[in-house]
Simulated assay, not measured.
Amino acid sequence: MDLSTPPPDLYGRPRADTFFRFLTAFGDRYSPALGSPLLRRNPRRPFSRPTEALQLVVTARRQVAVDVVELTLADPSGGPLPGWQPGAHLRLTLPSGRERHYSLCGDPAGQTDQTGQAGQADQAGPAGRSGYRIAVRLLPDGGGGSAEIHDTLHPGTWLTARRPRNGFAFCAEPAVLFLAGGIGITPLLPMVREARRNGLDWHLVHTGRSADTLPFAAELRALDPARVHLRTDDEHGGPPTGTELLAHAPRGAAVYCCGPAPMLTAVQRALDASPAASLHFERFGAAPVTDGEPFTVRLGADGPELPVPADRSALDVLREARPDLPYSCRQGFCGTCEVRLLAGTPDHRDRRLTPERRADGALLPCVSRAAAGETLVLDL
């Protein structure tokens, strides 16, 4: 016998057992659908375990512009953190319980010190970093998240976060134009470093009200003064037009834009007549409602009815009645504002809920709407 060849089955029998082969195939195919709790999960498939939240501690804080603070977050034990790619963001749970998303603005390929110089990659390699960097502008009229960060997050403060996620991925096209408005530089700064590292034909335009409102200006200039253009409203008599911004684009360039809504609108309108070929963008907040119809939300089966105008979101209306209703991204991808639908036919416009979750009554009021005259009854 050739001992280098394994036998046909565990017991050395020359033929597979036909009955057990059929039974195994039947179980693999049908066991998830059977009613018994013991048979609902295919035993050949591993259990899916929820991802554990990250425990983080603030290790450094500094002012990087007027009303903008930079925070460095690390593992309290000093261990490596999960890796990430340019454009990724963290979903932070603040000490108050508020959840907010902030773009990572460090360098995923290595350390970045406070002078903005990229250093040696840490020993964890590309799969892990020793610290995350975010920058937050204070919004006095916001929902309280930025004020809490500015007022309470100092070195030594602990908080939790979800692992980095990316909804604004950088594709590293050969020619790239980056357009940042104010704090919109945060997701673009790692992309600029990646473009520089890969020898791409890149340019950056960073706009703001005045020089002291532009975060990381010195860090950007140090990357390549010839490719970085800092443009302020006070020196040019007002905000730039879309045509002016896109004039910096190399022929056939991909444009990556992050900034306030008027800036995005101006760039979108001027794109076709520009040298650029494509546009990728990330918004600060919710997109304006352009095709909505007025409908109504009711708080519980016998609760008050709240009219939702055609140009406002259900979340905005709900928060006027329930200011403690949680929210974060306002764009339909984080799930923080999820509520339960009791009755009505919604128009789901989110990018998170599965068909099964929607069928079970999950609804994201930040983007979801209903037909004109429809009433959505919510479990609130």
Score class of each variant (00 low, 15 high):
350 D>V: 08
146 S>V: 05
113 D>S: 06
163 R>L: 15
215 P>Q: 06
352 R>C: 11
43 P>C: 02
358 R>F: 05
152 T>D: 11
14 P>S: 12
147 A>E: 09
144 G>C: 05
181 G>F: 02
248 H>N: 07
61 R>H: 06
139 L>H: 15
263 M>A: 08
302 D>G: 15
306 L>D: 00
263 M>E: 06
224 D>G: 08
308 V>E: 01
356 E>A: 15
159 L>R: 01
115 T>V: 11
162 R>K: 15
367 V>Q: 01
251 R>H: 13
110 G>R: 11
182 G>T: 05
167 G>A: 12
172 A>R: 08
110 G>T: 07
285 G>A: 14
323 P>C: 03
343 A>M: 10
203 H>V: 09
324 D>H: 11
356 E>P: 11
250 P>A: 09
221 R>P: 06
267 V>I: 10
235 E>Y: 10
226 A>N: 12
6 P>Q: 04
112 T>Y: 10
139 L>C: 14
158 W>Q: 15
182 G>Y: 00
183 I>S: 05
199 G>T: 03
141 D>M: 06
225 P>Y: 09
87 G>E: 01
301 A>D: 14
187 P>G: 03
152 T>E: 14
101 H>T: 13
326 P>M: 00
162 R>G: 13
36 S>V: 07
196 R>I: 14
147 A>G: 08
231 R>C: 11
167 G>L: 09
218 A>I: 07
290 T>M: 12
288 P>M: 06
210 S>N: 10
317 V>A: 01
148 E>R: 00
176 V>Y: 02
280 H>G: 08
325 L>N: 00
226 A>C: 09
222 A>D: 04
256 Y>I: 00
1 M>V: 14
193 R>S: 05
143 G>I: 04
121 A>L: 11
210 S>W: 06
2 D>Q: 11
63 Q>R: 15
200 L>Y: 05
293 E>K: 11
318 L>Q: 02
373 G>P: 00
315 L>C: 09
151 D>P: 03
54 L>K: 00
54 L>N: 02
219 E>R: 07
254 A>E: 01
167 G>V: 09
45 R>P: 08
231 R>V: 10
343 A>P: 02
305 E>F: 06
284 F>I: 03
187 P>H: 04
343 A>S: 10
57 V>S: 07
303 G>V: 04
